[in-house]
Amino acid sequence: MTLMQPVALDTPLLAVRGLTKRYGPRIGCADISFDLWPGEVLGIVGESGSGKSTLLSCLAGHLRPDEGEVIFATEDGPRDVLQMAEAERRRLARSDWAFVHQNPRDGLRMGVTAGGNVGERLMAVGARHYGDIRARATDWLGRVEIAVERIDDRPSAFSGGMQQRLQIARNLVTGPRLVFMDEPTGGLDVSVQARLLDLLRGLVREMGLSAIIVTHDLAVVRLLADRLMVMKSGRVVEQGLTDQVLDDPQHAYTQLLVSSVLQV
């Protein structure tokens, strides 16, 4: 499916070099470097406070890192996102990128109908035909398994799982190439989680998306991620193919993490 990607396959979609973010004397994340290739899903795991959310915010442009480069393969060639003007970065954030928040309330407009929420991103990139916007919103609600007759209901009338699926629809409607996800299954019960993961896996594979998923849930990365980065105290302690890292953890902390997963 990666053949559908418009960018060349011999350059990474996102190249991160020496990314560092400090909160005063404390370290948010330090000296992070990695490449993300088109169609690849990268999982970032670690305990609370390990800097994984800081890293994600820095990558998505929500936080300004102190050092480092975030080079994204834009349509006009690789560009350092951190050197872009804000207008350009925000344009990127609403066309080529998507950000799925842990809490759907952060990513949705609760006072606007489901259709309006999905349509907002289309209108933000210039769609001005109501019928088209409506048709694409309808299509996307179907793809995330929300009944089409709920298109004119507000997200506040939706269950938590539906809200999260709506947020995903809203983010993917413009056909982004890179999706950032911050604990996409956090706060959902297990059966809803399973459905959401199934859906996400389908969409990611079908659209050939690249994604960076931050989570503390090893089951999520096992299911979704091709590659895994383990963080501790703001640094990457181990990275590699997901199955390799989870089945044969090398670093003491990764071993601890893998062994502390509860078995039913």
Binding site: R90, G116, I133, D152
Partner: peptide, 16 residues
């Protein structure tokens, strides 16, 4: 930054 997509969301909601 001339990001006015949101204004159309209001009109969209009206029509919906």
């Amino acid at each position: 930054l001339e990001e006015y997509g949101l204004m159309h969301v209001k009109l969209y909601e009206d029509i919906a």
